[in-house]
Amino acid sequence: MSAIGELQRLNTSTGGPPRKRDTKAALLFLLPWFAGILLITAGPVAASFVLGFTDYNLIQPPEFNGLENIQRMLTDERLHHSLGVTFTYVFVSVPLQLAAALGLAMLLDRGMRGLPFYRSAFYLPSLLGSSVAIAVLWRQIFGAEGLINQMLGFFGIEGTGWISDPDTALSTLIVLNVWTFGAPMVIFLAGLRQIPVMYYEAAQIDGAGRWTQFRRITVPLLSPIIFFNLVLQIIHAFQSFTQAFVVSGGTGGPSDSTMFYTLYLYQRGFHSFDMGYASALAWLLLLIIAAFTAVNFWAAKRWVFYDD
């Protein structure tokens, strides 16, 4: 193992001169971003915050109603239900999707015949987006008389309508999400490309097996990218909207079984003309996501390995 250890040590200690402030350069590089925050983001974000304390039906001017929206959240059973749905989705689908993405990225990364073909094929489901055609397609596959049930029928099993049965709808959505592992897979692939091959060569000289190479080289060196995917997939999963919208026709049904948080918020805001409450809900979601992200960043100190 000595060669690996050597290389890692080499990388962790940069040993350069002490950092000095680069305020001027930072201002230059961040200029577009600062302009974006000020001109594009700040106004609407602040407005949504203010609206969270109002009764706003979109058509008439908002009316300040103090903490009423927050009180409503406490007793809103459908909100609590949608939180449950969302948490289940986040905790089940994110690990599964990342595992699939990382596994296949590892498999596809190096020295394989037909690599570009597989990579493209695996990415295809992620290209499809959320058009009407896709809604129809899911029904053809997961419907009561759909492809899956036809195949199950072969084995004498009678399936249900996977997306129209409240007992299976959420699980089906999770499967669908795992299926679109293409995006994190591509990011993993790009990250794997950054790992210098000499590490693996050194490991092989040391007689390290595949598993050891994975644990000692791939995971630490890929950890910034794993971390990125983890943080972003969690944020995305909490905000998951499109899939449930497409599959349930925007209702979050059957029986609210796919009522994701953002779908509920959207329905309150646009279908029930309750944008004040929807804005308050959005800020609660922001707090939840921010809390998870903060925990992620805190935990990252223990396992994410940077080169600086």
């Binding site: 129809v136 009561a144 249900t160 997306i163 129209s164 049965d165 349930s248 059957p254």
Partner: peptide
Amino acid sequence: APPASVSVERAGAGLDQ
């Protein structure tokens, strides 16, 4: 009428389905 899951599915699918 069809079982619940079929009914729900068709209701969500629009006229043609």
